[in-house]
Design a protein around this nucleic acid. Structure first.
Lengths: 343, 343
DNA sequence: CAAATTTCTTTACGCGCGTAAATTTCTGTC
DNA sequence: GACAGAAATTTACGCGCGTAAAGAAATTTG
């Protein structure tokens, strides 16, 4: 890093003794220039630390190197974690990730999509809000920008959906709970924000029927994304109302379970599979905090890595193909049962 | 939203019957044009939903409307939450936030700063990694971009620092614990990533001395940002080694405390202030999950809002002033003690 | 109503780079 | 050493917008 200030590619080209168009070629693909020229450019490059003005670059490209990553809630460690994985993969592919969180709000999700459109991204990885999504806004967006949905599906929107197989999640937890004790009740929000929740309830009902057990669904009230508090409050209410009598509970997701465990603790109930416990609790998602609950939470883990990798791979196929897929792809990955102390 | 496609400001100006330079003025400041013209432009605006190409706009502005927001770890709900608050404030001020997480890595932090420089932001709100920060890289960055540090301070770097007053945090928790029971031992990481941790230890020592109690610091091993596991592991180790005998524990931060509570639960120890408890635990930060631990965690809460608002306010003063502050500002906000069940 | 002032229009240039076309120079091969 | 093909250079234009200057039009002032 020395020498005088370089203001633009013109000056940098002059300083490195190469013509500007060739330097431009180099920045678009270092392998597209002769070895000897690449060496000269790179020598100049660390003498005068210059980098192309990204605004000028993107103005002249039809499609930029930006990849949008949108998740419903960045404060949820689950989404923060998958966003991080996607980010890493996108960078490895030589693109620039732009991570946006919708904070659980329809308006914010629409704003994010609009922001992305103005960034002219090469493609977008979108985990939609679900029920709260403005479907027509999302659909319009997807018609203009190659988009792969992940985590939560919206029928026929986007070029593909990559997610987890909710049936596999529930089948494994239900099978495990039935095999090792009392058949579970299902604990969920009555009006879940996320479409996966509905699939999980249906999968629970089906699994219980197959096993010849009577299902029991406990639906608690509550709106929004404060799942832990909804689960905690709902648990107390259900106990008070006498609707929670089962000694085996399967939660729709870990964040509800965290609230449920807190409520049980507050009521002096002992949760676990050990002798002398009052009830067992299992759940789904393998939330980053679920190993630190008291007791640690038995749950079904997403195949984070597979979902992230497949979503990115699908998107880049889409981008390179240059045209929509002939038929919308839906790929679901099975869960991995994680046995801990709660069940 | 109808009419034909508008490709650029030229076409939009023609469609609205206004000259392009005037339209340009409008977009830079709607109040800078006559009322009657503004009405005509806005009428055209929702007829042909056009918006200026942000790349072309930013190419010609010396400083863009971008504000960088960098936090050490986006997967930590604490940072996700404060980033969200900052984001909101920045949008309200008419700027575009660009949120980046450093994932706990020096290299990623440097990458983020470099990314930001290429975005030519009007200013940056930076919560540095702390001990792991590449100080000279951060300093160089701050010389080129108006930067306000928050959460964790690096001496003399950046135009200002807005954070929490660690002494106030520890003073309140120590005072409370001493007043209501046994004086606490202090539980921390031996090599904390964050400079606040050191300040808290010093504050603990000072507070104990003032109160005439013998301090007792339990430092656990562990590197990185997996604080919960470090706390859990460290707690077991400390019990096994017989170095944890106190019935009153003050954790450096909530994430460590979450791990400590998990370990206590695993050992069958009852934590709380209620009769018959084995020990009391308090902590600092009021992490979003700390009300759902078992038992819920007594802690000292950051004044999130004040820190966020002050950081943004300071940055905009800096930007509008157009020049560095004559003396570096350091503003610290006191904690608010949050009493829950753990102590 | 004329003068003063504000606002708008017209014209024109520049930002930094992508990219195409034509030409020149370089590379490797027989 | 001549030659084909690859790679680099020269030249030139365009992207969409900011912005400056000068004049025309609209508005406000007295």
């Amino acid at each position: 890093m020395s020498g005088q200030k370089i203001r633009n590619m013109e000056e940098f080209a002059a300083a490195s003794g190469i013509s500007r168009p060739t330097v431009s070629k180099y920045f678009n693909d270092p392998d597209s220039v002769r070895d000897s020229t690449r060496v000269r450019i790179e020598a100049a490059l660390d003498q005068y630390d210059y980098r192309p003005n990204i605004y000028a670059v993107n103005q002249n490209r039809r499609l930029t190197k930006n990849i949008g990553i949108v998740v419903p809630f960045l404060s949820d460690p689950f989404f923060a974690e998958i966003a991080r994985k996607l980010e890493t993969l996108v960078i490895e592919a030589g693109f620039r990730p732009v991570v946006l969180g919708s904070h659980g709000g329809t308006e914010q999700e629409n704003d994010n999509l609009e922001t992305l459109r103005s960034l002219k991204p090469a493609g977008v990885l979108l985990a939609p809000l679900g029920r709260a999504s403005d479907k027509s806004a999302v659909e319009t967006f997807c018609r203009h920008v190659p988009t792969v949905l992940f985590d939560s599906n919206i029928e026929d929107i986007g070029e593909a959906f990559i997610g987890s197989d909710n049936i596999s999640f529930v089948d494994q937890t239900v099978e495990y709970l039935c095999r090792t004790g009392e058949p579970p009740s299902f604990f969920e929000m009555r009006t879940p924000a996320n479409p996966n929740a509905n699939k999980r309830r249906l999968a629970y009902l089906a699994a219980m029927e197959r096993a010849g057990h009577a299902p029991d669904v406990i639906s608690v009230e509550g709106e929004g994304w404060g799942f832990e508090e909804i689960g905690r409050r709902g648990t107390h209410d259900a106990f008070d109302a006498g609707s929670l009598t089962s000694r085996s509970i399967l939660c729709s997701n870990d964040r509800l379970a965290i609230g449920l465990l807190a409520a049980c603790y507050e009521r002096g109930l002992k949760v676990g599979r050990a002798e002398g416990s009052d009830l067992r609790v299992a759940s789904h998602d393998d939330h980053p905090f679920s190993r630190f609950t008291c007791p640690s939470l038995t749950t079904a883990a997403h195949d984070y890595d597979a979902v992230a990798e497949q979503a990115v791979k699908t998107l880049f196929e889409l981008i390179e193909g240059g045209r929509p897929l002939n038929d919308r792809k839906e790929l679901l990955y099975p869960a991995r049962l994680v046995l801990r102390d709660s069940a």
